[in-house]
Design a protein around this nucleic acid. Structure first.
Length: 581
RNA sequence: UCCCCGGUUGUGUAAUGGUAGCACAGCAGACUCUGGAUCUGCUUGUGGGGGUUCGAAUCCUCCCUGGGGAACCA
């Protein structure tokens, strides 16, 4: 167990006092009162999209609550809507949850494996007289339920619903009809099985909810074996019960369904699972909705579910996020019932903190400008020692070649320096990281365009390694790459996917897809890196000194490496610049 | 305003009748061969009114305000 993991939960067994979130408090109480003698949770994804960090929050709550109380956690796919589900999503979700360390092992289940048992339970409810076959159309069901009616003040009122004319069919007839529904005797949508509860119930979901619908749709697992499919409200509590789940943890949107959850469990006389709700995760400048994410993929706004700008687990992984940083983040945001919008900077902070500890440093120049050292002995190369990770001595050192022509960052030279600028400008000295102290003697300009094409300087041979023997104060240190030994690389820089803090809040009539940040991706194809980076492997993360953390991207090919910027370094110069502007 | 659930610094979360704390962000400074890292300090909060109590973020009440709910989706 590492720090970030332990951060994601609190010590189990406490008496329910300070330090426990409200869910762990409730679980503690349930164990103490004897309501349950063990703890079992479940992760219930529907395989209709890839896992995003909002799911990761839910998953980690389920997983760690179980773990904290010595219980177990099931991974169960809630696959009861064949129209939207697919095996590729199952595989993606399994892969991503495993990568996060939320590995349920062989506790892998599918609601579709319970179809037969669920059917039997439906029959049981019919026999008890609390379920009936209805012939109303979907439109009629909505109307009978008590549709919205604007009153004189244009305020939505909800009148009591009316009973369906088929509500009081005899049990035998319901049994017969339901069997024939399954047998495929009726057209899609022509009949439903409904729970007989209360059409005047103030909670709309209790107004005789649909339990089964007829839908001739090929299911990715059961094929064409069924033409009736159970609805979530019926299937979910009973699947939980069948698995002996004690605590069914879900997001706030299901809160209003809890009475129904309890109704089905009571009427079916099955294991009394308990549903507890918490608030779902929202993050600034992004969206955590499968529907929205799917649209981004389908419209080609991003390159796929694993585009590094996506808040999906696959996207975050490709961006360079580590499981540890994600768990750290999830631990810090906590668990509550208030609607929240977490600052994306917190996520980035967690990544920086993790990578600062573990990523090796390397030098790379993103926007190159030639630096010519006029007094460098022609043709000679110096091999300098560079520290791999100042945060971790065991990472060791490496050799970096230095010569008379280097690439430096275009931003690190100014013809006319702005206030407080202490990098290269005519007459000024800077330290070349791990190299020598150089003094700018001038620069070359393209007479036609006015573009600066090279900077000239002299070096001080006594400062090898960057030390000034005379204790001279050199304010600036810049990074560099030897021009003749540089490895050409492509660097991809990312910015927030949406400019707006809350992308969901689009003005009326505006298609939200048009509000994506057009500048969220910047590919720098002419970048150079020090030779050691040629060895970069998939999954590797580096700190490009002074620039940020970068990871090897899967688009890399031998001889043409691509690196994604996971997150920039904290940049206090950027703040000064901003203030000056 | 038919039903349900929430409101603690800018953001997220603690405090479970007894000093309103922590983290991120922000600001200021120290240090530094990354304008990185690290360290120090600072600002800002219990939605409002009444009530109970020696004492209320916490309990009661009214108001205000945000979210969710009327799919043969999950």
């Amino acid at each position: 167990m590492n720090d970030s993991e332990s951060n994601a939960r609190t010590a189990p067994g406490a008496e329910g006092g300070p330090g426990l979130d409200f869910i762990r408090e409730a679980v503690t109480e349930d164990l103490k009162s004897g309501r349950y003698s063990y703890v079992r949770t479940r992760l219930p994804p529907e395989p209709n999209g890839w896992m995003h960090i909002g799911h990761a929050k839910a998953f980690s709550i389920d997983y760690f609550v179980a773990k904290d109380f010595g219980g177990t956690c099931n991974l169960r796919f809630d696959d009861t809507n064949p129209a939207k589900e697919d095996m590729s999503y199952v595989e993606a979700i399994k892969r991503d949850s495993k990568w996060l360390g939320l590995d349920c092992g062989d506790r892998l289940f599918f609601a579709s494996d319970y179809y037969e048992k669920l059917y039997d339970l439906a029959v049981k409810l019919i026999k008890k007289g609390v379920a009936y076959v209805d012939d109303l159309s979907d439109q009629e069901i909505r109307e009978y339920r008590g549709t919205a009616v604007p009153d004189k003040n244009n305020i939505t009122m909800t009148p009591p619903g009316r009973n369906s004319p088929y509500r009081d069919r005899p049990v035998d007839e319901n049994l017969d009809l339901f069997a024939r529904m399954r047998a495929g005797e009726f057209a899609d949508g022509s009949k439903t099985l409904r729970a007989k509860i209360d059409m005047a119930h103030p909670n709309l979901v209790m107004r005789d909810p649909v339990m089964y619908r007829i839908r001739r749709e090929h299911h990715y697992r059961v094929g064409d074996a069924w033409c009736i499919y159970p609805m979530y409200d019926f299937q979910h509590p009973l699947s939980d019960a069948l698995e002996g789940v004690t605590h069914s943890l879900c997001s706030l949107e299901y809160e209003i369904h809890r009475p129904l959850y309890e109704w089905f469990i009571r009427e079916a006389e099955v294991f009394p699972s308990r549903q507890i709700e918490f608030s779902r995760l929202n993050i600034t400048h992004t969206v955590l909705s499968k529907r929205w994410l799917l649209r981004l993929v389908q419209d080609g706004v991003v390159s796929g579910w694993d585009d590094p700008r996506m808040p999906t687990i696959a996207g975050l992984r490709r961006r360079g996020y580590t499981p540890e940083s994600i768990h750290d983040f999830l631990g810090r945001i906590g668990i509550a019932k208030t609607d929240s919008l977490v600052d994306i900077q917190l996520l980035e902070h967690c990544l920086r903190e993790d990578l600062n500890r573990r990523a090796n440093r390397v030098m790379a120049v993103l926007r190159p400008l030639k630096l010519i050292i006029e007094n460098w002995p022609a043709g000679t190369v110096d091999e300098l020692d560079a520290v791999n990770n100042p945060e971790d001595a065991s990472a060791g050192t490496r050799k970096v070649p230095f010569s008379g022509e280097l690439w430096i960052e275009r931003d690190d030279f100014a013809e006319v320096p702005p206030p407080k600028y202490f990098r290269l400008f005519p007459g000024n000295s800077v330290r070349l990281r791990y190299g020598y102290i150089v003094t700018c003697t001038g620069f070359d300009k393209d007479p036609a365009t006015g573009e600066i094409i090279a900077v000239r300087c002299t070096y001080d041979p006594d400062t090898r390694g960057g030390n000034a023997p005379d204790n001279r104060k050199v304010k600036g240190t810049i990074h560099w790459v030897s021009a003749d030994r540089a490895v050409p690389v492509e660097a991809r820089l990312f910015d927030k996917l949406f400019v707006a803090e809350r992308p969901m809040d689009v003005p009326e009539g505006v298609d939200w897809v048009t509000t994506v940040n057009k500048d969220s991706l910047e590919a720098l194809t002419g970048a150079y890196a020090e030779p050691s980076l040629a060895e970069a492997m998939p999954g590797a993360s580096y700190q490009f000194e002074r620039l940020g953390y970068f990871c090897y991207d899967s688009d890399s090919k031998p001889g043409s490496l691509v690196f994604n910027r996971s997150v920039s370094l904290r940049d206090s110069w950027a703040k000064i610049e901003k203030k000056q502007a």
